[in-house]
């Protein structure tokens, strides 16, 4: 997993609530057995018409946002299916940070496993960031995970919360499984106890 420390980039505004993972990556692209290559199908049904032509009005098709690295959106982002193909598609497109008023639980977890930083902020702050994002490619935001701040193109600074363990893993690009395997002794001892207490499991 790539480290996430500090990111300065274009933010794309997507002022919708309940952006679900079916929207992020429709089911026909879940048939892959790889994690890569999904960026071209990110938001597929919103991005392309029936003849596979780009729909010019969709934000990520606009020249200013084709290289966006940040996405600003509304309530309950990433709801629905647990498909990790959603963050894989975001990452493959080049998006490393999603800012929204709230996130669905499974999607939120999945982001951290893939080097993407999801940031939840109050509505008033997201409104300001949404306006900033609407300014286009000359307006770049900076997301600093170490300082836990977002700086708008105007220099306005917002702070955000993130779980310290997740922040640590993201900043160092750490593999969860490796960390958990360091606790193998605790897992084995738990299993030994369970073997006597709940042998039917």
């Amino acid at each position: 997993m790539d480290k996430f420390e500090k990111l300065t980039g274009v933010a794309a505004p997507l002022p919708l609530i309940n952006v679900d993972t079916d929207m992020l990556i429709p089911k026909q692209f879940l048939k892959t057995i790889k994690r890569t290559g999904l960026g071209v199908n990110l938001f597929d049904e919103m991005r392309y018409d029936d003849d596979r032509n780009e729909i010019p009005d969709f934000v990520l098709n606009k020249p200013a946002y084709r290289n966006a690295e940040i996405l600003v959106s509304g309530d309950n982002f990433g709801c629905g299916s647990s498909r990790e193909h959603a963050p894989w598609a975001l990452l493959d497109f080049g998006i490393r940070c999603v800012i929204a008023t709230s996130f669905a639980d499974i999607f939120y977890n999945n982001c951290f496993k893939n080097g993407i930083l999801p940031i939840a902020l109050p509505q008033e702050q997201v409104d300001i960031l949404m306006k900033d994002a609407e300014k286009g490619e000359n307006a770049r935001m900076t997301v600093d995970l170490d300082a836990q701040t977002i700086t708008t193109s105007d220099g306005e600074v917002f702070t955000f919360d993130v779980d310290p363990f997740r922040r640590h893993c993201l900043m160092n690009g750490l593999d969860d499984i490796g960390l958990t395997l360091e606790k193998a002794a605790a897992i084995e001892s738990f299993e030994a106890t369970m073997q006597t207490q709940r042998p039917w499991v």
Binding site: S82, E84, I106, N109, N110, D176, I177, T180, I187, E191
Partner: peptide
């Protein structure tokens, strides 16, 4: 509860979840 694929791998390897 549902989990993502990275967590599937984590459970396969460790039988636990963070």
């Amino acid at each position: 509860h549902g989990i993502g694929t990275s967590e599937v791998e984590h459970v396969l390897a460790t039988q636990t979840l963070i």
